[in-house]
């Protein structure tokens, strides 16, 4: 599937001006690109930065129907919407738009149930590696070594592989994408929208406020996460993994940029010891190896 640039230029404005997003917000870019690719979306948002950036009631910066719901209730509420719209015979696309807290951690059981039932939902997880909404605490998605307000000396554990957990549910479509490669993201969303059942898209979404990085380089960080092998790009369909054209060359460590190029641009990795960097590099290679087994 190939999406042409003019098609992307022509998409509807789903995130309006006056929203509360920080400068250089990665999730805003992910939201605009993803939601604008969908037919008549209804978006469910649990507690996360997206529940805040929409502005204060009664103003709303989202130009699509939005249900804000409790942290661990995104996929259950979306299940209700999808079934209700089916019952009413309305043509809509039900979406879960969650951060990594809602997907990796507190909301894991609700999406696992919905995925097992294969509810007709597209679940997006914009992954900024921590709880950004509450001011930068560790999450299951935080990489080893990263400083957060609850891991002041750097996280001691490796990052959870949510895509592989999701893959164990044998849902029809899984993809990863980065805001450094918007055409790739847009194409994957379009592809997901043509499939029925539970679909999952994990988006690497830098957060300059929490990562202590320059807001101007957010897209660049999105590219670097792919080029350094930090964030592999792939799709899983019918149990088979395919590394994406944009990222497949970084499967071979020789082609990757040095991980330091990614880490040095972010304050959260400033105090990393060389030992921690080595452990992080091992974690990343382990993930590539595990993913390769699904090819």
């Amino acid at each position: 599937m190939n999406v042409k640039i003019p098609e992307m230029m022509d998409r509807p404005e789903v995130l309006l001006r006056g929203n509360f997003a920080c400068a250089g917000c990665g999730l805003s870019i992910a939201y605009k690109t993803s939601i604008s690719a969908l037919n008549r979306p209804i978006v469910v948002i649990p507690a996360c930065c997206s529940s805040v950036i929409q502005s204060l009631h009664p103003n709303v910066a989202y130009n699509v129907p939005t249900l804000n719901i409790a942290f661990a209730a995104h996929a259950s509420a979306a299940s209700g919407i999808a079934r209700a719209k089916k019952m009413r015979g309305e043509d809509t696309t039900t979406v879960v738009w969650s951060g990594d807290g809602g997907t990796y951690d507190i909301g894991l059981s609700t999406w696992s149930g919905a995925a097992e039932r294969n509810e007709n939902i597209i679940h997006f997880c914009y992954d900024n590696n921590f709880y950004s909404n509450t001011g930068a605490q560790r999450s299951g998605a935080t990489p080893r070594g990263a400083v957060t307000t609850t891991t002041p000396r750097g996280k001691r554990e490796k990052r959870k592989s949510i895509a592989r957990i999701m893959a164990a549910h044998d849902i029809p479509y899984i993809a990863t994408a980065s805001i450094g490669y918007l055409r790739d993201l847009y194409t994957k969303v379009k592809k997901a929208s043509m499939i029925e059942g539970y679909r999952f898209i994990l988006i690497d979404a830098p957060c300059p406020t929490g990562w202590n990085s320059d807001p101007a380089i957010t897209p660049e960080l999105g590219e670097l996460s792919v080029k350094t092998g930090y964030f592999p790009l792939f799709e899983i369909e019918e149990g088979k993994l395919t590394f994406s054209k944009r990222g497949i060359r970084y499967k071979d460590p020789i082609n990757r940029l040095s991980i330091e190029k990614y880490l040095e641009k972010q304050g959260r990795f400033k105090s990393m010891t060389s030992e921690q960097t080595k452990l992080l590099t091992d974690d990343l290679q382990y993930e590539w190896d595990m993913l390769s087994k699904l090819e």
Binding site: I42, V44, L67, I69, A70, A73, H74, A75, S76, A77, A78, S79, G80, I81, R83, A84, K85, M87, R88, T110
Partner: peptide, 11 residues
Amino acid sequence: GAVIGASLAGT
């Protein structure tokens, strides 16, 4: 969660 979603979706 599901009935909240379903109710707001008009059922």
